[in-house]
């Protein structure tokens, strides 16, 4: 069983890396990009029976810093 954890900066938290990527895309001639936000994808391989609550605890304790980041958990069927 696998789960993907998406970690993203909260709305309103300035994302200097996203802004730099945005500028670089514009520099390459891609117009029409209105905003870029950079985040992380963490893929977990889990023992069967790992509960949603367990994964959420992992996110709160380590994978995301909830002062500045949100997380979203996506389970993937094997």
């Amino acid at each position: 069983m696998k789960a993907r954890v998406y970690v993203t900066l909260k709305n309103g938290v300035l994302d200097p890396q996203g802004r730099a990527i945005h500028h670089a895309l514009e520099g390459l001639g891609f117009s029409g990009v209105e905003d870029v936000r950079a985040g992380k994808l963490i893929e977990l391989s889990l023992a069967d029976g790992t509960s949603d609550a367990d994964i959420e605890a992992m996110c709160r304790k380590l994978l995301a810093n909830t002062v500045i980041e949100n997380f979203r958990i996506e389970r993937i069927a094997a």
Binding site: V13, L14, P16, Q17, A20, N65, V67, I68
Partner: peptide, 11 residues
């Protein structure tokens, strides 16, 4: 301590 330290604004 409260808060967090993020990437420098100027990168």
């Amino acid at each position: 301590l409260p808060g967090a330290l993020m990437r420098n604004a100027g990168l």
